[in-house]
Write a protein that binds this DNA or RNA. Structure first.
Length: 670
RNA sequence: GCGCCCAUAGCUCAGCUGGAUAGAGCAGCGGACUUCUAAUCCGCAGGUCGCAGGUUCGAAUCCUGCUGGGCGUGCCA
């Protein structure tokens, strides 16, 4: 072969992703034609259709305009002076001026043979590592984690792992909600309602019950207060609808009136639903004599809870002691779930950590004239927003925004990051917009602050995912169910193996865990993070098509071949076997393998894990086809057999590595 | 009212800063197990890319308007 060092000492091109390599080859050619070439280089991309080769450059068309020549002519000029003969076949100009590139087989082979010998599969570390803080998960420790926490946790973890793999200095920080009203609620609940034996037996469970109880009582009083106003509103809106209906009937063809009527009707429906909800909350308490009694005794519970919170924040010894007692319990409980998911953080600096810095933040912003008092609250007014960011309430309390500012300040002092990523749902977009704008005014204008937003997890009815009774779905139950279903499939498949079952009960259980957790994570990661997605157990654990299981299955097949063939993988890697790409399926697989780096680059471009899942799915598909069409162990010759074994090994390693970056594990046998 | 987001095949979704005949998976139909795991593979069928204009050599992609939906909107996080 010998082609792999053809350009040897020239650059680190050997390890660059293919796209980057191709772009560097185009750069000098384009620079000889025009001044600004970066946008044009972006127009080199993987071919959409195999008929157009492996890569295509679409830059001749826009260039033709500037140069006042025909696109075909421009394309031909570029091709004529393009130096790619070592890595591509002769480039072709096609259609309206597309340049089609097909990689040479010997170049592909050289790439692969290099990857075989490299622990990192030939993926280089970035030349200029950045320090990046990734802020994700961030649950309220006082509440059990629920379905709403999956996306932030899983997406954040995948971004963290991927950034780390490509060589950045990444710091993960779980910004726990450990200091807010939730703790005031628990403290109040503990002081008034605790069942001591239950607390001694299962403290977190009892704290959870207290939290819910206090919440219910607060909701009750709020509902009692709010209902009359809502009913009055409903009456007004119904009268409005009646008036609009008359108007509409008088002018049935007037579209505007029709729309006004529909809007009014919709408002009525919304208000009616709201009233029902409030009545439901009231009824739930009043129909239960014990709850009703508690509600009467604790008429002032809302204010009392705020008071407990305020006392905690003010350093009240009793409340602080309770907080110190509860927090480790809650955190340990939370840790259990993270352990199951295989997620760790470099730091868990919760809201409480920043408590001492909040007053200074407000003071500093005020001193710099960035904040001023308005209606008794300290506000930062921003030109691009109608409403200010409030950093201290009328009553003197600090807010989420204040803590976030203190957090930015701390992170900048402590870690001097180049970038901070907040993996938080899209509803907080405006909050982060204001936060970042304020931070920049405050002087943090060098760091890149980014809100990595994501959509809501919906139920199959298209509404935010809830249980049938309307409660949020606990994360732990979700995991259990995923594993239960995975187990059923694993057992079923094992039972139906041609040679009879191969797995022990323990193995099945272990596999079910890996497969179940993977299914849950993958369902999330494979969707574009910015869109809402419909959660479905059936789809998630379908275990076929574009799922983690399909990849895990592909991986298991690679390992199974080694086992059946008694192949020592270490020996295989060091033996220097040549890779032979004779069948289409082999070349397709080879091309896909070599594009791992491209996939990582693209996935990180906009922090979209679904780019990586799409790559892995495509790789697994190419492997399945190869597996189907090319005998490995019974290959026609030793040379082909070795070549194919090496391809299997590379595929297995790439799948394992790719899934690892998504926080998903593999199993040798399933 | 204002602001942000969304609308692509029966269903769930991709579609990268505008590029060649819009792609997957599921569901449907038809094939392939004496075979390294059939959790697979091959084929067929299925779309006026919400509607109407505009920008351009070229628009699912950019702009405007409209329709339908979601979310946010001064002291929650």
């Amino acid at each position: 072969m010998g082609g792999r060092c053809r350009r040897g000492n020239q650059s680190n091109e050997q390890t660059m992703s293919i796209l980057a390599t191709l772009r560097e080859r185009f750069r000098p050619v384009l620079l000889s034609l025009v001044d600004s070439v970066d946008d044009l280089l972006e127009m080199i991309r993987p071919a959409q259709d195999a008929r157009f080769g492996d890569y295509q450059a679409n830059l001749a068309m826009p260039l033709a305009k500037q140069l006042r020549q025909s696109p075909q002519e421009v394309a031909q000029r570029i091709v004529d002076s393009l130096q790619v003969d070592d890595l591509c076949e002769r480039p072709e100009v096609a259609g309206k001026g597309f340049i089609n590139l097909r990689l040479r087989c010997d170049w592909l082979v050289a790439r692969l043979e290099q990857a075989v010998r490299d622990e990192r599969l030939g993926i280089p570390r970035v030349a200029a590592p950045r320090t990046i803080v990734v802020d994700y998960s961030s649950p309220n420790v006082a509440k059990a984690m629920h379905v709403g926490h999956i996306r932030s946790t899983v997406i954040g973890d995948a971004i963290y792992r991927t950034l780390q793999f490509v060589g950045h200095h990444v710091i993960s920080d779980n910004h726990l909600g450990d200091w807010g009203t939730q703790f005031g609620m628990i403290i109040y609940g503990y002081k008034h309602f605790v069942a001591e034996p239950a607390y001694r037996a299962q403290p977190v469970r009892e704290l959870g019950r207290l939290y819910k109880l206090v919440q219910q009582l607060i909701d009750y009083h709020a509902a009692v207060r709010e209902l009359p106003e809502r009913e009055r509103q409903l009456g007004d809106q119904q009268a409005h609808v009646a008036a609009q209906r008359d108007a509409h009937q008088a002018h049935p063809q007037d579209k505007k009136l029709g729309k006004i009527l529909r809007d009014a009707q919709q408002q009525v429906a919304e208000t009616a639903a709201k009233c029902d909800e409030l009545r439901g909350k009231i009824a739930a308490v009043e129909h239960d004599p014990q709850l009703a009694a508690l509600a009467r005794e604790h008429a002032d519970i809302e204010r009392a809870v705020l008071d407990q919170t305020a006392r905690l924040h003010a350093g009240d010894l009793e409340n602080l002691a309770l907080w110190h007692e509860f927090l480790p319990l809650c955190k340990a409980d939370m840790r259990r779930i993270y352990d199951r998911l295989g997620i760790t953080f470099d730091h868990e600096l919760g809201e409480s950590f920043y408590h001492d810095r909040l007053a200074a933040v407000v003071q500093d912003l005020t001193a710099r004239d960035l904040a001023r008092t308005s209606d008794g609250a300290v506000c930062v007014f921003l030109p691009e927003y109608d409403t200010p960011m409030i950093i201290r309430k009328q009553d003197g309390a600090f807010l989420y925004a204040t803590t976030d500012l203190a957090t930015i300040q701390y992170r900048m002092e402590q870690w001097q990051p180049d970038e901070m990523l907040y993996v938080v749902d899209h509803r907080q977009g405006e909050h982060f917009g204001k936060l970042f704008a304020t931070a920049r005014l405050w002087g943090y204008d060098q760091v890149t602050l980014r809100h990595i937003s994501f959509g809501t997890v919906l139920g199959e009815d298209g509404r935010p995912y809830r249980t049938r009774s309307g409660e949020v779905v606990g994360l732990e139950g979700l995991l259990d169910e995923a594993i239960r279903r995975a187990h059923a499939v694993v057992a079923d498949n094992d039972d139906s193996k041609p040679g009879g079952p191969e797995l022990s009960a323990e193995q099945r259980q272990e596999i079910a865990q890996t497969v179940g957790h993977a299914a849950l994570k993958y369902a999330d990661l494979s969707h574009n993070r910015t869109s809402d997605y419909v959660f479905s157990y059936d789809k998630m654990v379908a275990l076929e098509g574009n799922t983690a299981t399909y990849m895990q299955y592909s991986y298991a097949r690679t390992q199974s071949i080694f086992q059946r063939g008694n192949v020592q993988v270490e020996t295989l890697r060091t033996a220097g076997h040549r890779i032979l790409l004779t069948q289409d399926a082999e070349r397709d697989l080879a091309l896909e393998l070599v594009q791992f780096g491209d996939a990582l680059d693209k996935s990180l471009e906009d922090y979209r894990p679904n780019v990586l899942t799409a790559y892995l799915f495509s790789l697994a598909t190419k492997f399945s086809r190869f597996y189907q069409q090319c005998d490995v162990l019974r290959a026609e010759s030793e040379a082909v057999r070795h070549s194919r074994l090496v391809l299997c090994d590379l595929t297995g390693r790439t799948i394992r590595q790719g899934l690892a970056l998504l926080g998903i594990g593999v199993i040798d046998k399933m």
